[in-house]
Design a protein around this nucleic acid. Structure first.
Lengths: 130, 130
DNA sequence: TCCTTTAGTTACTATATAGTGCCTACTTCT
DNA sequence: AGAAGTAGGCACTATATAGTAACTAAAGGA
C-alpha cells in the first residue's frame, strides 16, 4: 500500500523559492526581454517567442505577476491592450542574474575549449562585453 | 490529431541551463551542506536530509557530479565509503548564490512586514550576518 | 548462523505541468 | 456579411520525474 505523496520540503528555503520561480520554461527569457526592450504588449512578447503557446505565455506572465516581478497594465479598449513591464523587484534580481549569466558563459566557453582544442576564446567573450 | 511534443527551446540559453541544474528539489541544499560543512559521506548527507530517499539523493549527486559541481571519491572498502565534495566550479557559483540568498531573505522579510505590520526586521537579518 | 553496515539499484506509481487545438468578446475595416 | 485583430480561456493529453518499497554485495562481529 502506497503512502500519500508530499512535496519536497526544501521549498521552505527562500532562495529555493526564487529559483523555483525563475526556472520554469521561458521565464528568464521573458524577464530578459522586458529588461532589454522595456514594457511590451502580450502580442509583442509572443512575437519574439515564436515557439511559446498563448496558454503557456499567459501562465508565465500570471506567475511572474503574482510573484511581484512584472506589472500588468490592462486597458479595456476594443480590442484590449495589455502591457507588461518589470517591477523594482525584478530589477533587483537583474544584477544577480547578470552574475549568473557571466558564469554560464564562462563555463560554456571552457567546455567548448575542452571539447575542441584550438577553439578561440575571444568570440564568445566579446558578446558579453556590450 | 495531436502533434509530437518538443521540449522548451529556452534551454539553449546557458543561464537557463544553470538554473535548470540548480532547481531540482534538494539540489541547492546539498550544495549548501557541502559548502558549509566540507566533504561529506553519502550517509552523512542523507542523515542531514531525513526526508530524502536514497534513490533521489543518488540521482541528485550523480547529476551534480555530471555537471562538474561535486567530486565523488569512491573507496571500494567493505562496506564501501563514498565521499562527496565541492569542485572549483561550485565555489564560483557560491558568490552568486549568496547574492540570490540575500535577495530572497530581503523579500521574505518585506513580505512578512507587509502581511503583519509591527514585525521587527532585525531577527531575520541577524541570521544572515554570520 | 544471522545481523549489521554502506552505498546504492531496480521496478513501479502518482502527479505536476508543458503543450495542443479550439473557442470567445467586441469593434472596425472591406 | 464576413474577416481581422487582441488577449486570452477551456478541455484535454503526454511526459518527465519525484517518490515508495524492496532488494543487493561483501566482510566482520555476536
Amino acid at each position: 500500500m502506497l503512502m500519500p505523496r508530499r512535496r519536497p520540503t526544501s521549498a521552505q528555503c527562500p532562495m529555493d523559492t526564487i529559483l523555483r520561480r525563475l526556472m520554469g520554461p521561458w521565464t528568464t527569457y521573458i524577464l530578459w526581454l522586458l529588461y532589454s526592450e522595456g514594457p511590451l504588449r502580450f502580442g509583442a512578447i509572443k512575437a519574439k517567442m515564436p515557439d511559446i503557446s498563448s496558454k503557456v505565455l499567459t501562465d508565465r506572465l500570471r506567475d511572474l505577476e503574482s510573484y511581484g516581478l512584472i506589472n500588468r497594465d490592462y486597458r479595456p479598449s476594443i480590442p484590449p491592450s495589455v502591457t507588461y513591464s518589470m517591477t523594482a523587484r525584478a530589477n533587483e534580481l537583474h544584477e544577480v542574474l547578470e552574475g549568473l549569466n557571466m558564469i554560464a558563459l564562462k563555463w560554456a566557453n571552457e567546455d567548448a575549449i575542452n571539447q575542441d582544442q584550438e577553439h578561440p576564446m575571444m568570440e564568445i567573450m566579446a558578446e558579453t562585453q556590450n
